[in-house]
């Protein structure tokens, strides 16, 4: 009992319970949901697909987790995904023989660099000029899609350079390659934030920037850094998105991803009020969003209607985070305490 109690106190407990409930639901109602086959030395199956399809959102969620921990928000990540995809596609070029215009690593490096610059722009607006995060990133979310379209000359660029497909479609040791990218990014981020004081600094800025500054933390640089990092994550996500479909569509690449990623972070237990962050929770959150979408598809519901379900999930999760709502529920059940 005591173990269960301490378990349920862990912030990651509830997201995992939610994911497990979803999985159980699928176990009974979706035939062959858990079947995993080995074809051509790779693992195939719904579960593998979910992880694979969730990886662009997971990558975004890592960056957003840190941004939200500082009580900020970054709604430009979807546009940065489109910019990154556009840049890498233009540099590799749509050669039918698959001969890249520039070496693929350089093209990828350039795309990520541009994304980091975009993130730094956001960071500058928030930390140096002092704009509200939602407004500062709104600018790039409006202009970014225009930039992506201008980069690709408003055309959909198709890629035929085989090696680039590894990122989004390839497999390594039987698992989708994109999973390793996510794992590497999360590990690095967790190491840097949790094994050094950086994570604590980020949380301190989220709780009270003024107090953090008096405590000797350079709040401006922390803020600048998290937005630049969010740009980096969006850039990598853009590469994966572009490689998965082997094309760059400035209009649709990453459309609405910012919302899914924010939802993933919030589902993972990181509050929009800042101050605490849970990297693993965000990953579980992204998996929940993806599992939910896959489940809805499996039922033959048109994918677009999935949005209604996601809207309901957002609503329920926000209600659960609302102090007043909890108090009301607690009052309803006649308990003095109500702890989640």
């Amino acid at each position: 009992m005591a173990i269960l109690k301490s378990l349920s106190r862990a912030k990651i407990f509830w997201p995992i319970v939610a994911l497990a409930v979803l999985m159980c639901f699928n176990l009974f109602f979706t035939p062959n949901f858990f079947r995993v086959e080995i074809k051509e030395g790779h693992l195939y199956g719904n579960v593998i697909d979910i992880i694979k399809n969730a990886s662009p959102i997971m990558l975004l969620a890592v960056g957003l987790t840190l941004v939200i921990a500082t009580k900020g928000i970054d709604i430009s990540v979807g546009s940065i995904v489109a910019i990154s995809a556009g840049v890498v596609a233009m540099l590799i070029g749509g050669d039918l023989q698959g001969v890249p215009k520039y070496p693929i690593p350089y093209a990828m490096g350039a795309a990520v660099l541009v994304s980091v610059l975009a993130g730094m722009w956001n960071g500058m607006l928030v930390s140096r000029i002092g704009m509200q995060p939602i407004i500062a990133t709104l600018i790039l979310s409006v202009a970014g899609r225009g930039i992506a379209m201008v980069t690709t000359n408003a055309m959909i660029v198709w890629l035929y350079a085989k090696p680039f497909a590894l990122l989004g479609q390839g497999y390594f040791l039987g698992l989708p390659f994109s999973i390793y990218i996510v794992a590497a990014l999360v590990l690095l981020t967790a190491l840097v934030t949790r094994r050094t004081a950086l994570g604590l600094f980020i949380e301190a800025v989220g709780i009270n920037p003024t107090a953090a500054r008096f405590a000797g933390i350079n709040a401006k640089n922390i803020l600048f850094g998290v937005y630049a990092f969010s740009g980096l994550c969006a850039g990598i996500s853009g590469l994966v998105v572009c490689s998965t479909v082997m094309s760059a569509d400035g209009n649709n690449a990453g459309l609405g991803y910012e919302l899914s990623a924010i939802l993933a972070v919030v589902l993972g237990g990181t509050s929009l009020n800042g101050g605490k962050f849970y990297l693993l929770g965000s990953l579980v959150g992204a998996l929940i969003v993806q599992t939910l979408t896959t489940t809805i598809y499996a039922f033959g519901v048109p994918p677009e209607i999935a949005k209604v379900v996601i809207a309901m999930v957002v609503l329920v999760v926000s209600l659960l985070q609302s102090f007043k709502f909890r108090a009301m529920v607690a009052g309803f059940f006649g308990k003095r305490e109500f702890s989640v």
Binding site: I134, L272, K307, A311, V314, L315, S318
Partner: peptide, 18 residues
């Protein structure tokens, strides 16, 4: 419920679009 307008209208965005 004293929730941020940003999140609730975001849900509204999804809902209406769906």
């Amino acid at each position: 419920f004293e929730l941020p307008p940003f999140i609730i209208t975001l849900a509204g965005l999804y809902l209406a679009r769906g």
